[in-house]
């Protein structure tokens, strides 16, 4: 999942309408529409909720209700890198807490937050399904397992190094 470039894009009605029309051929398409909106922008912009509601002829309150019901949807933009911390049973037993603590120290974002520099969004997830490699996290869609606090340092440092090499990102 690479969303970084598009997160800075402003939501446009043309893009939202195209997504709606693509899915709206079948009944019950609100969720697939929202999923693609989020894939495009990294989050569900409030303006999109209104637009989807008008286009699909459902009350905006219902679309909003769906967004808040399902854990997948977020209403805030993402940082440049999305880190999902697995809090499954196996990870819990094998020390996710310590790994998560270290992660929030080195990224500057606690679970559910985006770091001040916009570099990292850290999310808490129920289970990534890689229980034999507990504890594990997912960074931009790639899973890392058998983690230790030291391994967290390495992963975060590598991301920072990679980001520094690229064209300096605009702030904010």
């Amino acid at each position: 999942m690479v969303i970084e470039a598009s997160t800075r894009e402003k939501p446009s009605f043309a893009v939202i309408d195209a997504i709606v029309h693509k899915h709206n051929v079948e009944a019950g398409a609100v969720i697939p529409v929202l999923q693609e909106i989020q894939e495009t922008y990294g989050y569900v912009p409030p303006v999109a909720i209104q637009r989807i509601a008008e286009n699909m002829n459902v009350p905006a309150s219902e679309v909003f209700g769906i967004v808040t019901f399902y854990a997948q949807f977020r209403l805030q933009p993402l940082g440049k890198n999305l880190i999902k911390v697995c809090h499954g049973t196996a990870c819990h037993l094998c020390g996710t807490e310590t790994v998560a603590e270290r992660l929030s120290q080195v990224t500057g974002a606690r679970e559910g937050e985006t770091s001040q520099d916009g570099m990292f969004t850290v999310e808490r997830v129920a289970c990534l399904g890689c229980c034999s490699l507990a504890p594990c996290i997912m960074v931009n869609g790639e899973t890392y397992g058998r983690l230790t606090p030291e391994a967290i340092d390495k992963i975060v440092n590598e991301i920072r190094k990679k980001e520094a090499k690229e064209i300096p990102a605009p702030v904010g």
Partner: peptide, 23 residues
């Protein structure tokens, strides 16, 4: 159909609601 992250959707009537595009 991709589930959007709700454990309760493992329950069959909830799952049906979700495919129908509802909570």
């Amino acid at each position: 159909r991709q589930g959007a992250g709700a454990f309760v959707c493992g329950e069959e009537t909830a799952l049906i609601m979700s495919i129908e595009g509802r909570r």
